[in-house]
């Protein structure tokens, strides 16, 4: 499902959460929506899901989404806690709403996931632990089989084994049922291998939209003897460095040209990819007044 956002603004009173944002997603990929706290991720996703009337334009496959029955049917957003479940309902009842109201709902898959994440069906949603509530949100999101599925930090609170089970499940389900999946997360490195394209926002504005591999190639980790590394990185944008004895590793932002690559080889430096998370920190944290 293609997503087109044009001139989108979301305001809460005097606070502007999303500020004149425009971008397009071609669809059928797993997208990472990255941003710091308060950057506007949830507001953006809420508008994409028709949870609020947009100022600007939000279109799914060329159709406006807000109060458009045809477009709304194709969207599922799971925020930190599941909106699609009332805390007074038992888990089984919460799943029944999906079965009753969502045309694309896969009830068999929903129950498989409930078993996988060990969510008790007869317990009320409000009595679940934070991790179980997160898992229920993931169940609702994935079992919706919506052409546009958005998971907004929905794995928050899951323990590590459950998160890994979620990543595997997400990937398997995406392979079996390709669709547009947007995930917002602060656990960037854990999810990095799943993301095909990354959208980074900050202060309600689009900072960058790039293929994940292209983004990774924007930075390089340079490892070697401390003096050689210091010589090589002089004049480059260094995001951070760490030393162990005489060995030093520095993260450099920006693409290296041929002469720099030759110089690195002459100095015997090792060049490697940089962590997506480090690039994200650099791109969303002003350094010397500039990004």
């Amino acid at each position: 499902m293609r997503v087109d956002v044009s001139g989108l603004t979301v305001r809460y009173g005097d606070v502007t959460a999303v500020d004149d944002m425009s971008f397009s997603l071609s669809g059928n990929k797993i997208y990472g929506l990255l941003g710091r706290n308060g950057s506007g991720k949830t507001s953006l996703m809420s508008t994409l899901a028709g949870y609020r009337r947009p100022i600007g334009s939000v279109q799914l496959d060329g159709e406006p989404v807000f109060e458009n029955a045809g477009a709304m049917r194709n969207v599922c957003l799971v925020r930190h806690t599941p909106d699609a479940a009332d805390k007074g309902d038992k888990v089984a009842e919460a799943l029944n709403f999906g079965k009753a109201w969502r045309d694309t709902w896969d009830d068999t898959y929903a129950h498989e996931l409930v078993e996988l994440f060990k969510i008790p069906l007869r317990t009320k949603v409000g009595e679940l632990s934070l991790g179980q509530r997160s898992a229920l949100g993931v169940v609702i999101g994935l079992a919706s089989r919506s052409p546009l599925t958005m998971l907004d930090e929905s794995h928050l609170g899951m323990d590590t084994p459950t998160r890994y089970a979620f990543y595997d499940t997400l990937l398997n389900d995406f392979m079996a049922h390709p669709r547009t999946i947007i995930i917002s997360t602060h656990l960037i490195e854990e999810l990095a291998s799943l993301l095909e394209e990354v959208v980074i926002i900050d202060s309600g504005r689009l900072v960058l939209q790039e293929e994940a591999d292209v983004l990774r190639s924007r930075g390089t980790e340079v490892t070697g003897s401390a003096s050689d590394v210091d010589e090589f990185t002089a004049g480059l944008t260094v995001l951070g460095s760490k030393s162990l004895g005489r060995t030093k590793a520095a993260m450099v932002y920006g693409t290296l040209d041929d002469s720099q690559l030759i110089r690195a080889r002459q100095l015997g430096l090792e060049l490697g990819p940089i962590a997506l998370q480090d690039l994200f920190v650099h791109l969303t944290e002003p350094v010397g007044g500039k990004r």
Binding site: A49, G50, Y51, E67, N68, A69, M72, R73, N74, V75, C76, L77, P82, D83, A84, A85, D86, G88, F97, G98, W101, R102, I140, S144, S146
Partner: peptide
């Protein structure tokens, strides 16, 4: 209060 948000979260419009 309880069912309208659930309906919208399951892809239904407020009008419906």
């Amino acid at each position: 209060h309880n069912l309208l948000p659930i309906a919208v979260a399951h892809g239904r419009t407020r009008r419906e």
